[in-house]
Structures are given as C-alpha cells and as structure tokens.
C-alpha cells in the first residue's frame, strides 16, 4: 500500500508518522503499568534503534558517488575523534563539496 504525496496525501503520511511516534512515547509507560518490560525486549530495542540507522546509511555509501562516500567516511572519523555531531556533520558536507568541486 502506498500514498501519493501530492496535496492531502502528504498530510496523511505525516499523521501516520505522528501516530507511530506518539505510540512509542506513550507505549513505554502504558506497558509498564501492566507488566515490566523484560531485559531481552530492552536488548532487542536497544540493538534495533542503532541498526535501523545503519541500514539506512549503508546503501548511501555503496551507491553514492565519491563525494558521498568521502562525506560519510569523514563524518565517521571526525565523530570518533572529536565526538561532536555538528562538527562531524559539517566536516562531512565540506568533504562532499570539496570532492565534487575538484573532480567535478
């Protein structure tokens, strides 16, 4: 099933996103008022929340141009060294711009 994003469709998509996100915000407290969340479920959620971002970024590195790849590599390295997201993201963007300017 898919929704066309022209006009009212975009609002429907955003409403769906809001509903799912709200369910995660309220769900933890709601579930805990009936039964404590087990350690295994917590471990599943913890592992999944990082994995989904990795799963989104991986194809960008594989399919992207040299600029995209160097941007991601730069962000990775700067983040490991400096540990400041804004610095790492800025460095990544700058790397992409530079590579594209030099290679074209």
């Amino acid at each position: 099933m898919s929704i066309e994003t022209a006009g009212i469709g975009a609002i429907a998509v955003i409403l769906i996103m809001s509903f799912v996100t709200l369910a995660t915000r309220l769900g933890g407290v709601f579930v805990m008022s009936f039964v404590p969340i087990s350690y295994r479920v917590k471990q599943f959620i913890g592992a999944m929340s990082g994995s989904v971002l990795v799963a989104l970024v991986a194809p960008m590195a594989l399919e992207g141009d040299q600029g995209a790849r160097l941007a991601l590599l730069t962000t990775l390295v700067v983040m490991l060294v400096v540990k400041k997201p804004l610095v790492a993201i800025s460095a990544g963007i700058l790397a992409a711009a530079l590579v594209r300017y030099l290679i074209g």
């Binding site: 898919s2 994003t5 769906i16 799912v20 959620i45």
Partner: peptide
C-alpha cells in the same frame, strides 16, 4: 519520500528508530 510513499515500510522504519522512546517511558515509570 517520493511521489508515493510506501506506508508499511515507513511505519516500521519510524517505529524502529523511535522505539527507544519505549525505553525512556519504562525508565521514567
């Protein structure tokens, strides 16, 4: 996002990323 958005993959993706809110609720309980 595109001219069309596949609803189920979108819902699962949003849920998976935001599932950490469930843990926040559990720890604040």
């Amino acid at each position: 996002w595109g001219t069309h958005v596949a609803v189920i993959p979108l819902m699962i993706t949003v849920f998976a990323i935001n599932a950490r809110h469930l843990l926040m609720g559990a720890t604040l309980y």
